[in-house]
């Protein structure tokens, strides 16, 4: 075992163990101190990154003669006017530009990317158990979301009342898989920290 001599590693180990102390010793002074320090550092980093963005995206292009950048800069400044009482309606204009731009950028390819391609992929030939299960599961989940009484009564009359119930089971399996991978992800993050403590800090 060769404990690290690097003060940064010691600091990281102290922060890690202090955060973990919450598990065994609720709201320990170490946890509270490290939490406050982390929030302060995060705020500081945000300020620096923000200033760097302004320098790179605004000041540098302006000094290089690219004056078209003034328009988005003005729109951004108009957003701050919402804090002036009586004038906060002005901020609606840049918000409208942001929302419209985002919607246009996203919607343009959303139909192809998230609807057409996925629907095409769902229509597989029913020549294997996997494909049949997938197709029936897809229909069942869609049927589950027909929540109007008229539709569910119609399905019962057509002897398809089992379909939305099966859809609920399929959804539960999907959420279970999602939960399982969430647990896996959290374990990975913990193991990452333990690897740091055992190898980088303690040198085991």
């Amino acid at each position: 075992m060769q404990i690290s001599q690097d003060p940064i590693v010691w600091l990281a180990a102290f922060v890690t163990i202090s955060i973990f102390s919450f598990v065994f010793w609720n709201d320990s002074p170490f946890y509270k101190y490290v939490q406050s320090a982390y929030l302060g550092v995060a705020a500081g980093v945000t300020v620096v990154v923000g200033w760097n963005n302004i320098k790179n995206q605004v000041i540098t292009p302006l000094t290089n003669g690219n004056y078209t950048i003034i328009i988005p800069v003005l729109l951004g400044l108009l957003l701050l006017i919402r804090y002036i009482p009586g004038l906060n309606w002005v901020a609606r204009y840049p918000v409208a530009v942001l929302v419209a731009g985002g919607a246009g950028l996203g919607l343009a390819n959303t139909v192809q990317a998230q609807f057409v391609s996925q629907i095409k992929a769902g229509l597989k030939p029913l020549n294997s158990i996997d494909n049949i299960l997938m197709f029936v599961g897809l229909l069942a989940v869609i049927a589950f979301f027909f929540l109007t009484g008229k539709t569910t009564r119609a399905m019962e009359r057509m002897k398809l009342g089992w379909l939305p119930r099966f859809g609920r089971i399929v959804l539960m399996v999907a959420f279970g898989a999602s939960f399982g991978t969430t647990v896996m992800g959290r374990c990975s993050i913990l193991i990452g920290r333990l690897q740091f403590l055992l190898t980088d800090f303690l040198g085991l």
């Binding site: 992929a121 898989a177 999602s178 991978t181 969430t182 992800g185 990975s188």
Partner: peptide, 10 residues
């Protein structure tokens, strides 16, 4: 990351 796995395999 693992959380996003099942939703993106499609």
């Amino acid at each position: 990351n693992a959380v996003m796995g099942p939703a993106n395999v499609p």
